[in-house]
Design a protein around this nucleic acid. Structure first.
Length: 935
RNA sequence: GCGGAUGUGGCGUAAUUGGUAGCCGCGCUAGACUUAGGAUCUAGUGCCGUAAGGCGUGGGGGUUCGAGUCCCUUCAUCCGCACCA
């Protein structure tokens, strides 16, 4: 795109000194041939595990935003290696997923083929950047050797249940034993539905009944549940895959549907998932997102009797102190109780209401929160304390899936109940002092109980305690902690995913034996559902066990393969275990995990759950997988615009556009440099611009710009290998880090890249004389040189340890500038500087290191040791302030006492002007910091 | 609505414990070298002002000898959650 002449000039100039292309190819080849980054278990060394969230290999390839986190983790890995740690730093691919399958549907191309092609492209792009990955450990989730262990884990979950007493997973066989002896009487297990049967009942159950009962307890279970059904994608989705009623992938509408689907009993681990967060070094915001998602609330479960009925209505409330303010009850429309308590005269209206609710999609329900709807069942509950009759309503503002699917409505102190009461003209009784009930509900947990019998006068906190005591004392209910976290829907009606190791006998699911794994994904003719509406696997011929039982037709969701991949890296070729005991006990857990915040409620919950389960069954030694986690910020796009004058093919430069009526048009950022348009390239860009005319400003066309999402349609996508071609990998690495703090979102703006490129050239020149001959001296370093070096060592070490890479780059620039002015070409100083720089810019560091006469790779050396004595000062340049405003500087010895400093400051010549003959009111002296004179 | 984060030159940013606001880089200005420059080097560059000096970290208030940093309040932007009882 650039004109030939310019390209050539660039090339010639580069071959003359810092030839990054040659250098980078050379060292990448060296690292590969010498297996520089291969690691093995080595008990003589401390371990350190640095992990990147592995990518989904999309067809678009990597853009410049992807490597940001990878570069940061690579710097940290290389640093830790230089510190003497045995660093595990692997990479792989999250290879199953929808895009490849959607593409397969359109083109007939097998998703495995597309995926393979995309992975190849990713690998090439990654390799050009010079990462220190141990590629021997590469994994792909779609590889049978890998997904064997995903299937294996599923089988383990199927064969375990969660015991609420031991708070861990236990074998389903011990549950069976218990059923045989005592039935359910001593059982306290996480389950879909609370069951009650005797040992005798159990023994009388048929095989089918027993198996159905066990599904109620298994951690991986098949059940009729409300699922998020996405018709457009033809599959169900987990809660984290739905946002505002739309699928996260594709943005298609999602509706609620009752279906028989596989789920993982993640909710059983809610407490442990929440408590576990406390010991993790994650950002507060990320922990907060997970806390909200898990959603713990403390309250009470209370039973209300129903008039003329044997049935009881169980509600959950966090405000038992307001129980005397109950004026009506509300059931979720889906609640089973609705059918049995509705009186005959209300039946019709209730049915109509339920039907209407069913028809609405999740999105519709969310969209009009304002519309209040509900219907009276005709039934009355009895207030447990007052004995009064309370009408029972149904409404879709009560959710079936949370708590007990029923509430006691206290309109005076809950805004939703208030709105409902106002709408249907139901009574409102204030039971907590404060607020104005005639205007709105008073939801705050402040004030004293009133109109509340034995609670009167107590503040909210004590009233809750007292109410709970009474509820328990009278056998009305018990205190309860509820969680918002739901079980994860685990089936997908799609092709490109892990097959379930499950077959059906008499419609009951059974799992395969471990030695039958992996159950490989079969070939099919089309990647579409069957004519009868079964998932794509329904097209597979002979999709059954050796005994002829049909195999499960669903496949596993995207998060299945990514839930334990960090364990597999520890021992990726193991054929007899997910990870050997030896490898797991050595590598333990991930010390540093870097990735995007978009996985906060998906992958990062599922893998914690998965890991905790494996911990329970003694497969891994750590309860939490990711000790420290950093979310790298998103790299946004920075779009450029040209301004077309209306009804013409003429384009006016940014500064002059106000004089014309113009339309801004996105222009490919790859033909713009420092916001100056390459007009020749622009004309060649697209046919309609071939005859474009320009109105220039001082001979140049200046473009406008704006920050927006990086996407093809905005022509602002920048590809890392374009940057590598033009500036080299080391420049790309440094520049991505120089852009700003790792965790901040920032636009990719190529404008500043010349700065870091110049820095590398300056560094190069430190090692070379005027004729570009390598030239360094063996003499003793000077005091100044050592001071610059050690100042830098300290700064770089501190910065790396707090992941402040942008300031580290700036420190390198300062160091090189200073050594440059000192005309330093001292071997000892320059070599230590190279080691500091090696984690950031490994290629140039290796090259200069080798040129300086070292035969081993710079990655095998030791990080320099900071020595305080080299930066020791005996004077300090004090800023002297008057009334807090800095006026001048004064160089004073550090040996002076406070009084001596004060005198020196007051008596110096410059001070007289500011004192203006007056006596200072006060003088503040902070040794080695500042002098402030108050006048 | 609830929760979290951010706000500093023309631009990206820095200031780790309350102690010189603007480091480093881009851009810009002037100069040197050069057939040439998108190379390199030198000097300058927060704003207003010829200067002395004044003003400056989204706005307002406070604590302090001293505030980008602490407290109160307010505005803007972004993100997360959202009938969760």
């Amino acid at each position: 795109m650039r004109s030939e002449r310019k390209k050539q000039a660039f090339f010639i100039e580069n071959t003359m000194e810092y030839t990054f292309k040659e250098i980078e190819t050379k060292w990448q080849k060296y690292w590969l041939e010498n297996k520089t980054y291969q690691v093995e278990v080595d008990t003589a060394k401390p371990k350190f595990y640095v992990l990147d969230m592995f990518p989904y290999p999309s067809g678009a390839g990597l853009h410049v935003g992807h490597p940001l986190g990878y570069i940061a983790s690579d710097i940290y890995s290389r640093y830790k290696t230089l510190q003497g740690f045995n660093v595990l730093h692997p990479m792989g691919y999250d290879a199953y997923g929808l895009p490849a399958e959607q593409y397969a549907i359109q083109t007939g191309q097998h998703p495995a083929v597309t995926t393979e092609k995309n992975i190849k492209r990713y690998k090439e792009q990654l390799d050009k950047i010079g990462f220190s990955y141990d590629w021997n450990r590469e994994i792909r989730t779609c590889n049978p050797d890998y997904y064997k262990w995903t299937q294996w884990a599923f089988i383990q979950m199927f064969n375990h249940y969660f015991d609420n007493n031991t708070e861990k997973a236990e074998p389903i066989t011990s549950l069976i034993e218990e059923f045989e002896i005592n039935g359910t009487s001593n059982i306290n297990a996480a389950c879909t539905e609370l069951l009650s049967f005797t040992a005798k009942d159990w023994k009388n159950y048929s095989e089918k009944e027993q198996q159905l009962t066990l599904l109620n307890y298994r951690l991986a279970y098949l059940a009729e549940t409300m699922v998020n059904w996405c018709p457009e994608l033809g599959t169900v989705l987990a809660n984290d895959e739905v946002k505002e009623g739309l699928s996260v992938r594709g943005g298609f509408p999602v509706e609620q549907k009752k279906m028989r689907q596989w789920s993982l009993r993640v909710s059983a681990y809610a407490k442990r998932l929440l408590d576990g967060l406390n010991n993790l070094e994650w950002t507060e915001s990320l922990k907060e997102i997970q806390k909200n998602w898990i959603g713990r609330s403390v309250g009470a479960e209370v039973n209300f009797e129903i008039q003329n009925s044997e049935q009881k209505m169980e509600i959950f409330t966090t405000r038992p102190d307001t129980i005397f303010g109950v004026t009506f009850m509300v059931l979720a429309p889906e609640s089973e109780l609705v059918q049995s308590i509705t009186t005959p005269d209300c039946k019709e209206k209730i049915e109509t209401y339920i039907e209407a609710t069913k028809k609405r999609t999740e999105r519709e329900r969310l969209a009009d929160v304002k519309t209040i709807s509900g219907e009276f069942t005709g039934a009355y509950a009895i207030h447990p304390f007052t004995g009064e009759k309370i009408p029972v309503w149904i409404s879709d503002y009560v959710l079936a899936g949370y708590g007990t699917g029923a509430i006691m409505a206290v309109p005076a102190h809950d805004s939703r109940d208030y709105a409902f009461a106002k709408h249907f003209d139901l009574p409102i009784i204030q039971v907590v002092s404060g607020g104005d009930i005639s205007e709105e509900s008073y939801d705050a947990k402040e004030g004293n109980s009133m109109n509340s019998d034995f609670l009167n006068g107590l503040d909210v906190k004590h009233a809750i305690e007292k109410a709970n005591e009474e509820i328990e004392a009278r056998g009305l209910g018990k205190q309860k902690i509820n969680y918002r976290l739901r079980d994860a829907i685990f089936s997908r009606q799609r092709y490109w995913g892990e097959p379930f190791p499950v077959y059906f006998k008499d419609e009951i699911p059974y799992v395969l034996e471990e030695n039958q794994l992996p159950l490989e994904l079969p070939e099919i003719d089309k990647y579409l559902p069957t004519e009868s509406g079964e998932p794509p696997l329904g097209r597979a011929t002979n999709w059954k066990t050796v005994d002829g039982y049909p195999l499960e037709l669903n496949t596993m969701p995207g998060f299945a393969g990514s839930s334990a991949y960090y364990l597999r890296y520890m021992d990726p070729q193991n054929n007899s275990a997910l990870v050997s005991k030896e490898a797991n006990e050595y590598w333990q857990d991930v010390d540093l995990y870097i990735g995007g915040t978009e996985h906060a409620t998906g992958h990062l919950i599922y893998s914690r759950f998965w890991n905790k389960f494996l911990y329970d069954i003694n497969e891994v030694c750590k309860d939490e997988p990711f000790k420290k986690l950093i979310n790298q910020g998103m790299i946004q796009g920075r779009s450029n615009f040209v301004y077309r004058i209306k009804n013409s093919n003429k384009y006016v430069s940014y500064g002059l556009r106000k004089d014309y009526e113009t339309t801004p048009i996105h222009v490919d950022v790859n033909i713009v440099k420092n916001d100056i348009l390459d007009t020749v390239a622009f004309k060649e860009w697209r046919p309609e611009f071939r005859d474009a005319d320009f109105i220039l400003e001082d001979g140049k066309y200046h473009c406008g710009w704006v920050v927006e999402k990086m996407s093809k349609s905005m022509f602002n996508v920048v590809n890392p290998d374009v940057i590598v071609d033009e500036y080299g990998a080391d420049t790309l690495r440094l520049y991505e880090m120089f852009l700003g703090p790792l965790e901040a979102h920032k636009p990719w703006d190529t404008n500043g890249i010349d700065g870091v490129y110049k820095f590398l050239k300056k560094l190069w020149r430190l090692f070379h004389n005027e004729e570009n001959k390598f030239y360094i001296s063996n003499s003793e370093p000077t005091k100044e040189e050592l001071k610059v070096l050690h100042k830098t060592i300290k700064k770089i070490q501190d910065d790396i340890e707090r992941f402040s890479f942008n300031t580290a780059i700036s420190a390198f620039m300062i160091c090189v500038n200073e050594l440059n002015s000192l005309k330093c070409n001292n071997k000892q100083v320059l070599e230590e500087l190279l080691i500091l720089l090696a984690p950031f810019a490994p290629h140039i560091a290796e090259e200069l290191w080798a040129k300086a006469g070292n035969t081993a790779s710079i990655t095998k050396t030791k990080f320099p040791e900071f020595q305080q004595r080299f930066i020791q000062e005996d004077t300090h340049e004090y800023p002297v302030s008057f009334n807090g405003k800095m006026r001048f500087k004064l160089n004073l010895s550090l040996n002076l006492s406070k009084e001596e400093i004060e005198q020196a400051a007051l008596n110096c010549e410059q001070a007289q002007k500011w004192l203006d003959g007056k006596n200072p009111k006060k003088v503040i002296v902070v040794p080695k910091k500042i002098i402030n004179i108050v006048v």
